[in-house]
């Protein structure tokens, strides 16, 4: 049976004044896809997902998404948190549901149960009354993931979610994403520099250099003569970063 397209981009072009950040990009996102969007710094990865999320305007092309397809978002970790921000874990996770509701904003019994289930799944139930700024990087990332998941999104978009995590936490995080993808049917779009860690989990790679240069499986990407050096360069960079931390 053919997979259903949840999101379709056709000829998408995004410009900052005269600079073209994303040029004529077209692709479809299908149900249960686990996509890694990769590319060098400045290749337009973050611009592309911010445009999909409606945070940036685009100059040309179309983005088609059914109204009943919901999207969850996990922003870049470094941008997310002020260490002194007074917000408890349950306030932050609850935000994921309450921000989308109309007045009066209250959680139903079912929604409260949903929050509990997500907290349990991500193993952060014991942290609910803690201040988010007091948690470790990995715990904060799971809290923000919980916030994105409580509304049961069909598509989860993540912007470099593992950039602040060490190797073992990165693996744990990708295991959680795999579980969401396989067991809960969540479609995942991931912007990452960490293609080496992500390679075992994803079913599609989109390589961006303003234009979409490659759309295929991880194995096909590794075999691509022109693009595969990208993996080598980045795996070396990851190894160096790992040695330094």
């Amino acid at each position: 049976m053919d997979k259903q397209s949840l999101l379709s981009l056709q000829d998408l072009t995004v410009k900052y004044h005269s600079f073209t950040a994303v040029s004529s990009v077209s692709f479809d996102v299908y149900e249960r896809d686990f996509i890694a969007i990769i590319g060098a710094n400045g290749s337009g990865k973050t611009t592309l997902i911010k445009t999909i999320l409606g945070l940036l305007h685009y100059q040309k092309g179309t983005i088609e998404k059914n109204d009943d397809v919901t999207v969850g978002y996990l922003p870049q970790h470094t941008m997310a948190l002020d260490r002194f921000f007074p917000a408890t874990v349950d306030e932050v996770v609850g935000m994921g549901l309450l921000s989308t509701k109309r007045f009066p904003k209250r959680l139903s019994k079912q929604e409260k149960q949903n929050v509990q289930d997500v907290l349990h799944m991500l193993n952060i139930k014991a942290l609910v009354h803690k201040r988010i700024g007091a948690l470790s990087g990995g715990q904060q990332q799971r809290v923000l993931l919980a916030r994105a998941l409580v509304s049961n999104p069909d598509i989860l978009i993540l912007d470099e979610p593992t950039s602040a995590l060490d190797h073992s936490m990165r693996k744990q995080f990708f295991d959680i994403l795999k579980h969401l993808n396989k067991s809960h049917g969540v479609t995942i779009i991931l912007v990452t520099h960490d293609i080496v860690s992500a390679g075992d989990y994803i079913n599609r790679v989109l390589y961006l250099d303003q234009k979409l240069m490659f759309d295929g499986t991880f194995n096909q990407f590794c075999e691509h003569q022109e693009l595969s050096p990208f993996i080598h360069t980045h795996s070396l960079r990851q190894e160096k970063a790992g040695e330094q931390s």
Partner: peptide, 22 residues
Amino acid sequence: TSLYHDLFTMTFEEDFAKVSGI
């Protein structure tokens, strides 16, 4: 009080608030 949740979300993270439709 009536806009509390939207104000809280926007203060915590403006991009997330926009994505949520605020």
